[in-house]
Amino acid sequence: MLWTAWLDWRIGVAVATAIALLLPLILSSYIRLATRGDRYYDLDLIPNQPVAIVFGAGVWEDGSPTPMLADRVQAAVDLYKNGRVSKILMTGDNSTPHYNEVAAMQRYAEGRGIPREAITLDYAGFSTYESCYRAREIFGITHAVLVTQRFHLPRAVYTCRTMGIEAVGLGTPDWGKFRDDSMRYYSFREVLAGIKALWEVHITRPRPTFLGPFEGLS
């Protein structure tokens, strides 16, 4: 009896461990599968949309965009110049006076010929979830192309579509362009972020840090 109980306990622990290890991968695969038809990696294949939503990805101490952020904004610039979108919503973190992702994004885009009137800034896009929530509720966006790196694109598209935006995504290069150790970190973090995204959009639906009145696209 003691041996049987010990063996049952070992089996139970093994099963629980396997579930704990596999569940994040299963959920991540579900997000990728659910958005498979809405993700593109070639600008020429992107269907025309009224607006591109560009997600923040960090700035350096001098206020310039990180390489990942610059790639995202450049892709939005290309979408605009190719007539795929007529507006760009730049959403990111401006939580302190000394950290402003969206200002860096705006400077980069304007420096490459995008007129200021085509750009709208969301200073309170503190996460993918909050950016999608605010894009729908504050800026009234119902159709958009999302611009971000390929590793992040499935979660971004899934989140925005679940929040009521008919979104497609344009993925910018990541593996092969950025350091492998960085990409391993981002990819691992993305698996965990996928669990959080599913919890937020399907169960808790928290209000964003800041909501405020409806603004529409400027």
Rank of each mutant, 00 (worst) to 15 (best):
H98G: 05
K177Y: 07
F210L: 14
W60I: 05
R161H: 06
S86V: 03
F214N: 04
E137W: 15
N100T: 01
P154D: 09
N82M: 04
I31T: 04
G58W: 09
T209S: 12
Y186S: 04
S28N: 10
L89A: 00
T142R: 15
R161T: 13
I119R: 02
S131Q: 05
P208H: 10
L33Y: 13
T91D: 01
G58R: 00
R136L: 06
E61V: 06
V54P: 13
E101T: 07
I26L: 14
A57E: 14
E61L: 05
S131L: 03
V157N: 08
A14L: 13
E110T: 12
T148L: 09
T120D: 14
R205P: 09
L23Q: 04
P213R: 03
A103S: 08
G140C: 04
D8W: 10
T66L: 12
T17M: 10
R189M: 01
I31R: 09
D38G: 09
S29C: 11
T91F: 04
S95L: 00
F55A: 10
W6V: 10
S182C: 06
L22S: 14
D93F: 00
T66F: 06
Y108A: 12
G176L: 03
V77M: 08
E130H: 12
K81V: 00
P154Q: 01
S182L: 06
Y40L: 15
Y185V: 02
R179P: 07
D78S: 12
P206A: 14
G56Y: 05
L21G: 11
F151H: 14
T66M: 06
E215L: 12
G56M: 08
R107H: 04
